[in-house]
Structure formats: structure tokens, C-alpha cells
Design a protein around this nucleic acid. Structure first.
Lengths: 364, 364
DNA sequence: CTGAAAGCGCTTACAG
DNA sequence: CTGAAAGCGCTTACAG
């Protein structure tokens, strides 16, 4: 293995100078820098990350914890984040918590001394406070942090639940639907120990209801309780059909759920959108190929990853100066686009396939 | 930050002893070990991985390179591998190569000194030899290595192309189909610089053809050229319908493709399986919720991850003794299960949803 | 602008 | 079975 010393010797400088030159510090004379860089290339030198991390405290490695990589939402997020970091020569460790609260906490805890510069978390069960207790000072950024406002202790990025749900309801209204079921919502007070995702469910549900009321719709029967998963969506569709399908539209709180609903309704011979219109939330790929294709609120994942990395690097940088203690956590809401497809417009509409530019050229 | 020295002091032993005790070496007296462990827990000590890696050359971190995390096959593999490693207290960095040959090589190259103990690669464009040139001695395990036999220089794990395709064809034959199109195949000689995946396509295609011939079917019109992607599958379905649909079954080489085919056929009003039966390969989740659900060769991902980790750890261990140089690379083929669903059996069949046990409890 | 020295926190021979 | 010493490959003050 070729070390920094080898490069320094070859270039006729000291290791300190070689180190500074390779890191692009501007205290080193241009000519010296060029000499060092040339030798480094010639010798195929590359920095030993362990040594750098041990000495400097920075490894250039970040960690993302998601509940499940097979869910299109998390896969897309992981994809975008990995790409965004790679562009800055940073790496991403991905861990899967399987929706298990204790597993997630244990994973965070083990990160403590593990040469990881920062943590991105999609938590479904732990509040910012609970994460903070085990994170041991590690910079953290949360996706859809559901802590109550004054409990927020980390920067976070939110999906556009408010405007997105409102857009979905407005669209269904414009399609002439007046009996909308909001699938996957949650009503009532939050218990002390509820899963955090319950807050997200309640937020989206509230927004849907408010919009319906603004539009003069009756909301007394709007809630359709349901897990946010494809099998749950399918079961719910069957249950609704057994009850005589009291809705002419089903506004689903995420795409996984909506795809299950579409499958379930199809099994029961319900026509979409003639009998029932369906909308989703997230904008994952299978919704562009289901029958019918799924109208959905497509989150801007590229922007989400860009902001996440930028906020994280701010945080990591600030920490250096020990000045982040008093800072108020930022909450940023990501953009979206309503993709109007067959599940609300009928089969004559053009089917839109939307993907990140970064993931466009895919086939083998 | 609490260091090994703190633990050693608290337990009244030397750092060397504390280190040995915490790593479970059996040279240390049980009583001593217990004392050390107790103090480590009390102080919330955890090993600094950078320091350990720098000194010992082992970080406990592995890397997986996949072309795309949003493809269900790679997502499932990443999920399984991450979980399997986590169970052994090892970590997984995931990098996305986006099907770009040079990006993949660059990613491997940068791994060299980057505290990574081993590399898992799903390569679509680089041969084992090409990878070896940049891997710089790093232990590597390949998924579906398509190097010609005598060029193999790494252990590899293969999807059950042979038996799986054969099972799919036998199943279609048993369903009474005699005009089978093999979608996504490849025929003819391999060019010197072909994408590796072309070899996989040819392998699966060959096996399908052989099986058809064994069963007495005409194979002269069997090849349906097509990329292995959902959009390509959809386009192909349209093209076939325009030609008057010369097949009564389409045997697709992976699920992504098959899901596009199903969508495309549905758009054209083709009934499945009455007019055309469809099969896939992989066993990813969306195939359990499409309309119709997709009959497919479901790869045993849990076994795949188990074997991958086990083979990798063997390799990492052996390397320690410098005795792996002359070893012949192993090739292991993973198991599968034919999931018979609606796209071949019709809608009265039970729809089977199969997932790894590890990914079963999923909903938020 | 450059270099000599110290040290990050471990593990590894080696001596006892 | 345990401990003192050395050193993994860097970066960071600090002196020139």
C-alpha cells in the first residue's frame, strides 16, 4: 500500500506539505501542489480513510436509516441521497430498521464511535428526543420529523403533506367527485406513546378534511382507517366493496397503499375511475405502470436529497465551531407535482412516467 | 468520548487486556473479562472503528454496488444483504452505479484505501477481470458474474437462470401454450465489448429455447428482443399487438420487464391469460399486486444474502493467511420457487404474496 | 510557504 | 494470563 509518505518522498516534500497539497489548502505554493498531485497520481495513491478519520474526526461517510428498502419511497430516497453524496465524494451507509423501534435505536447507538459524520433518519417510531438520547452528539437530519414543534431538536425535511393533500382533493373535486374517502388517515388525540407515523397520518388526513370542507363537501364519513401498506390497501378495498362502496373517490395517503387499493378494487370488478377514482402520494414508479396508472402527488426527490445533503453539511461544518448549540432546528418542506393519470382521468389520458434525471437511463 | 484506556483504568487492567477481553479472546481470564465488560457498559464505551481499522486492517464495513436501488431486484438484494450483515454486527455501504460502466469502475477504485473489508458487486458492464484490475486486492464477490468460465477470478453467486427458465417454460407448456415468445433474450455471438448483462440474457434465452425444444415446440420465432426494463416491456407489448400478436405466451426474463408487458397488453385490450399468458423472473413485490398478478420464478433472496455473506467472510478470513491466491473461484447457484399466479392461471387462482420473513412486518 | 513533532485510539507482537 | 511498547497513516498545531 502506498502511503502519504511515499508521495511526499517522491515529490521531495514533507508529509505535512503533501497532505495540505492533496487537500487543496491554499497555503501551499501552486508549483509544490502540482508536483505532489502528479506523484500521487503516478503512484496511484489514495488516502487511507481510517487514518484520516482517526486524526481529523471526519470520515466522509454518512448513514441513512430507513424502515424498508423495498418500499419505493425509501428506495427512491436512498437512491437520490446516495447519488447526491457520491457527487461530493461522500459515502452512504444504508441500514434497514424494518419498522422496529428498538432496532432503530440500537442502530443509532452503535453509530456513536463508528466513523460516521452524520445520520439521516426516516423514523416511524422514535421522536427527535428519543433519537437525541442515543445519538450522542452526532449530527442528525430527520425526514418527516413528527415531533411536536417545540420538541424538535434536529433539522428536518418534510414531504409536502399540506399542499399535496390539498392538491389531490382539489383535483378529485374538479373531476366531479363529492363522496371522497380518505384512506390511511388517523383521527383523534395522539397517545403519549403513539408511533410517530400516526402524526403524519393525522396531518395528511387533517389537510384533506380541511380542503374538503373548504370545498363544501361532507366529511363526516371521510375517514377510512388503514395501514400504509399494499396488502392493507387491498384488504380495505374489499371491505369497502362489501359495504356497498360508499365513495366515488379514494384519496390514499401513499402510493403503496393506493396500489393495493387499485388491485383490490380490480379484483372486485370496480371500474376506475368510472365507479371510483383513486389518488396516491409519493410518486413511485409502479404507479406509472399499474392498471389504471395512478394519479399521485409526486414528491421532488432530487430536491429532497439536495437539501438534505446541504443541510447536513452546514450542520457538520457549524459543529466544528461549536456554535450550533443555540440554533433553532430548521424545517424545510419539499416540492411536489400532481401527476394526473388514469386512476382519476380515465384511460384516454396520457400516462406520465416521471423519474429523476439521475435515474433515467435504466435498463440492462 | 470514552476510550479503551478509560475502560481499562476503571477495570484496573491494561489497555491490551481490556482490548482482548472486549473482543472475546479466550486467553483472558473469565473474571477479568467480566470486570472489563461491566465497566465498558457502565461507561457506554464503544470501539472507535477508525482506530481499529487503522491498526488491524478490518473495519467491519462492506460495500455493495448496484446499478439502481429502485429496481425491485436490487432493492430486495440490498435489503437482504444489509440485514444479514447487521445480524453479524457488520455494516453495508451501498453505492448506485446507474448502469454506467465508468462510474462503477471509479467507485471500485475509490474503495481501495477506504476502510472497506470487501465488495459485493452487481455489475452489468464490467467483467471480473476488469473489476480485478481496479480492485487492488480487495475481496470481491460477484452476483451473476458473466465472465466466461476460465476468466472467473472471484467467487460468485448466480440466479437460477437455468432451472428457473426451464420451470417457467414447463409451466407454460402445462398450461397448454405452444407459441411462446421469449422476451428480453439475446441471440448470436457475443462481441468482445458487449455489456455483461448480454451474457445473462443469452444464458436465460438459451435455456428457454432448449426447454422448448425438449418439449417439441417450434423455436424459430421465439426471440423477442427487448431491454430488461418496464418501459421497454410496455413498448414491446404494443409492438407485438401491432404485429397481430403471434404468441399465446410471453416468457419474460425479469419481472420489471414483465410488469411493463402486462401494462402494455392491458392497454391494448389483450386478455391475460386468456389471450396471452405472461411469466416473469425475480419475484419482486409489485408482481403480487399487478392486474393480473404475475407468475414468476422467485429467487430465494434470503439464501442469496446468507451465502454471499458466508462466502465473503470465508474469503476475508482466508486472505489473512495469504492462502487464497491459488484457490479456484466458487460459483454458487441460488434456489428459486415458481410462483403460479393469475398471469398464467387466470383470476380464480389464489394470489400468492411471497416475501422474506425478514421483510414481512411492514407498514407504518 | 514548509517541515519536525506529536498524537488520534486502537491492536499487535513480545516479554514476563 | 497480563502489561509495556510500538506503530497503523494520517492531520494538526507550532516553529521557522
Amino acid at each position: 500500500m502506498v502511503t502519504l509518505k511515499d508521495v511526499a518522498d517522491a515529490a521531495g516534500v514533507s508529509p505535512s506539505t503533501a497532505s495540505a497539497a492533496l487537500r487543496g489548502m491554499d497555503i501551499v505554493k501552486p508549483l509544490t501542489r502540482r508536483k505532489v498531485i502528479r506523484q500521487a497520481q503516478r503512484l496511484h495513491y489514495s488516502t487511507n480513510v481510517s487514518a484520516r478519520a482517526l486524526r481529523s474526526g471526519r470520515s466522509g461517510i454518512f448513514t441513512l436509516i430507513v424502515p424498508d428498502l423495498e418500499n419505493g419511497y425509501y428506495a427512491r430516497l436512498a437512491n437520490s441521497l446516495s447519488n447526491r453524496l457520491f457527487a461530493r465524494n461522500l459515502k452512504l451507509i444504508i441500514q434497514v430498521s424494518q419498522y422496529i423501534k428498538t432496532k432503530e435505536l440500537r442502530q443509532i447507538q452503535e453509530l456513536r464511535s463508528s466513523m460516521c459524520d452524520g445520520l439521516f433518519v426516516c423514523s416511524t417510531h422514535n421522536s427527535a428526543r428519543e433519537i437525541q438520547q442515543v445519538a450522542n452528539g452526532l449530527p442528525v437530519l430527520l425526514f418527516d420529523d413528527m415531533s411536536v414543534q417545540n420538541q424538535a431538536c434536529y433539522d428536518s425535511i418534510e414531504t409536502p403533506s399540506r399542499d399535496g393533500m390539498s392538491a389531490a382533493i382539489h383535483h378529485l373535486h374538479a373531476c366531479g367527485r363529492r363522496r371522497i374517502g380518505v384512506v390511511g388517515g388517523h383521527q383523534g388525540a395522539l397517545s403519549a406513546s403513539h408511533a410517530l407515523s400516526v402524526t403524519l397520518r393525522r396531518n395528511r388526513y387533517r389537510q384533506a378534511l380541511d380542503t374538503m370542507q373548504d370545498l363544501g363537501m361532507d366529511t363526516s364519513q371521510a375517514l377510512v382507517a388503514c395501514d400504509w401498506s399494499t396488502p392493507a390497501g387491498r384488504r380495505t378495498a374489499h371491505a369497502l366493496v362489501r359495504q356497498g362502496m360508499p365513495y366515488d373517490a379514494l384519496c390514499c395517503m401513499n402510493d403503496a397503499l393506493a396500489l393495493g387499493v387499485i388491485r383490490g378494487l380490480a379484483e372486485c370488478g370496480v371500474r376506475m375511475p368510472e365507479d371510483v377514482a383513486v389518488t396516491g402520494f409519493d410518486g413511485i414508479e409502479p404507479g406509472a405502470y399499474s392498471v389504471p396508472t395512478l394519479t399521485t402527488v409526486a414528491v421532488d426527490f432530487t430536491e429532497m436529497a439536495r437539501m438534505a445533503v446541504s443541510m447536513m453539511l452546514d450542520h457538520v461544518g457549524q459543529q466544528e465551531g461549536h456554535e450550533d448549540s443555540g440554533r433553532t432546528p430548521r424545517r424545510v418542506i419539499v416540492g411536489y407535482r400532481l401527476l394526473e393519470r388514469e386512476s382519476t382521468l380515465g384511460i384516454h389520458a396520457a400516462s406520465t412516467v416521471q423519474r429523476d434525471p439521475e435515474t433515467q437511463s435504466k435498463s440492462i
